[in-house]
Design a protein around this nucleic acid. Structure first.
Lengths: 131, 131
DNA sequence: AGAACACTTGAACAACTGTTCAATTGTTAT
DNA sequence: ATAACAATTGAACAGTTGTTCAAGTGTTCT
């Protein structure tokens, strides 16, 4: 029974799929950097915490039960990818989520990762939308 | 001039910010896993390629100029996080993006990473929406 | 000015990750 | 059944990453 059941993978089909430049290569690398920064449990927890509003480093450290240095290092990674905002307030330095894009990414991934949809109602609203 | 300019970081404020259980802890870990899988240039390129439609491993390998094994390993990581779909077609195994969530994450991050907005018009439509 | 607080940084070390290779499985064709 | 093709797997090695520590910067208070 010599029947062809390989309709979508003919040899010439392979050649036709040229390496598409759908997005500029730099964009992919930057996006990967963003994902890499978010691809760490402790760091992602930190972002969700900042999703509730701005917080200073000490505040975050006590909330997470970690020391200042560790938190500062995690924030550095997030900052290098432009995921968090940073402003001084007296002695303290307040961190927040950088923009709505970050909120969306967080929201999207958490929604995907949660079967019984979580309560993210307080999330979007507190994005420090003040410019 | 002894003026207090530290309104948002009083000590009692720090204590009030309880470790919020906005999302279940497992969800954060899973989301981190997803981001980690996407946080690698070659793997992310692979996802954008699959964003154009299903492709078999050989096809992907020639498009990327890599060998089968390397591509297969990358796909394994993506598969472990549920980011890609997989189905057999004759000799070949066709991979695609798992669902709309993945498309959204990709779209979102690429949009964030691109200043001069890229042409992603062909992206959303070809999501292998067939179940 | 000095002391105390808030945070950052570079270096070092352990843990993890990506690629490659060789061997293996599953499918189709002869 | 044997051969050829398509893809997967485990192991090994190199490169990367996260945490911790000790030392440093900048700010406020007295």
């Amino acid at each position: 029974m010599p029947k062809a059941i390989d309709p979508s993978c003919a040899p010439q089909d392979h050649l036709s799929r040229q390496r598409a430049a759908l997005v500029q290569p730099g964009a992919i690398e930057r996006a990967a950097g963003i994902f890499r920064a978010m691809g760490d449990g402790p760091r992602l927890r930190l972002l969700t915490l900042l999703g509730q509003g701005e917080a200073c480093v000490t505040e975050i450290a006590t909330a997470e039960g970690e020391d200042l240095s560790t938190i500062s290092q995690r924030l550095r990674v997030l900052r290098n990818e432009g995921l968090v905002s940073r402003r001084r307030n007296g002695k303290h330095i307040l961190y927040g989520l950088a923009d709505q894009h970050v909120v969306d990414l967080l929201f999207n991934a958490l929604a995907h990762a949660s079967e019984g949809r979580p309560d993210l109602s307080r999330f979007r609203s507190l994005t420090t939308t003040k410019e």
